[in-house]
């Protein structure tokens, strides 16, 4: 079990050269200081700060939900709820070949469409590429999308996806959690699913949340696993 400690930017987390500064920290002489407001965590020799708020920053391989913003000659521009837009090239949209001379790109994805995609690549200039080709990746045609704070996503998923699995079991709702703070849900008891997700978002910093959520799901969901 690692120790977690609430820190503010500039606060010294560890002294001495025995530790390495990880995400959300920086080295200042022999000290490691927090660069973020969040929970400081030391695992092995690596010190990091888990943010409690903030925008989503795209990371390679992250599954996200994007919304088409613009259709261009050979690609689509997607809003991925980040400071930077993502680009999806024709070759990354569907498994079959798209002939730019014959096919209209809007037949595949048009403005406003929501897409489950994966971050393919990011360069130093923060140009982001995504793909919709791969297991589970597709255009969304039904259900609804819930926006929550991206910093709370790890809590919604839970250790080894335990939390989201539990929600799906009790509510019978199909759920896809994008790392960028967008959650897709469809079917089952959608109302309860939304309520539970909002509760996790509001109380993400509390310990023992899984048990509390399980109790709520048991009492509200008629005690039956769907």
């Amino acid at each position: 079990m690692e120790n977690k400690q609430l820190v503010t930017p500039g606060e010294v987390i560890t002294e001495g050269m025995d530790y390495l500064p990880g995400d959300g920290t920086y080295r200042d002489g022999s000290n490691i200081r927090a660069a973020l407001m969040g929970l400081a965590q030391t695992r092995d020799r690596l010190v990091k700060v888990i943010p409690l708020s903030g925008r989503y920053m795209p990371k390679k391989e992250d599954p996200v939900i994007g919304v088409v913003k613009e259709v261009r000659y050979s690609n689509w521009v997607l809003d991925i709820n980040a400071p930077y837009d993502a680009v999806m090239m024709v070759g990354e949209a569907v498994d079959r070949f798209i002939d730019l001379k014959k096919d209209k790109l809007t037949n595949y994805f048009s403005v406003g469409d929501a897409v489950i995609c994966r971050i393919l690549h990011i360069d130093e200039g923060m140009s982001v590429m995504v793909t919709a080709r791969g297991p589970g990746l597709r255009k969304l045609t039904d259900g609804q999308i819930l926006d929550i704070a991206p910093s709370k996503i790890p809590r919604i998923i839970g250790k080894g996806a335990s939390m989201v699995k539990m929600i799906k079991e009790y509510t019978g709702t199909r759920v896809f959690v994008g790392q960028n703070g967008r959650i897709w849900l469809q079917g089952g008891n959608e109302e309860l699913t939304i309520r539970v997700i909002k509760k996790i978002e509001a109380e993400a910093h509390k310990a023992g949340l899984t048990d509390e959520i399980q109790k709520l799901l048991e009492s509200e969901g008629n005690g039956n696993k769907a």
């Binding site: 930017p9 500039g10 200081r33 660069a35 973020l36 407001m37 409690l52 708020s53 903030g54 910093s151």
Partner: peptide
């Protein structure tokens, strides 16, 4: 800091 922006 509340916005989660990294700073010294």
């Amino acid at each position: 800091a509340d916005a989660g922006i990294p700073m010294k």
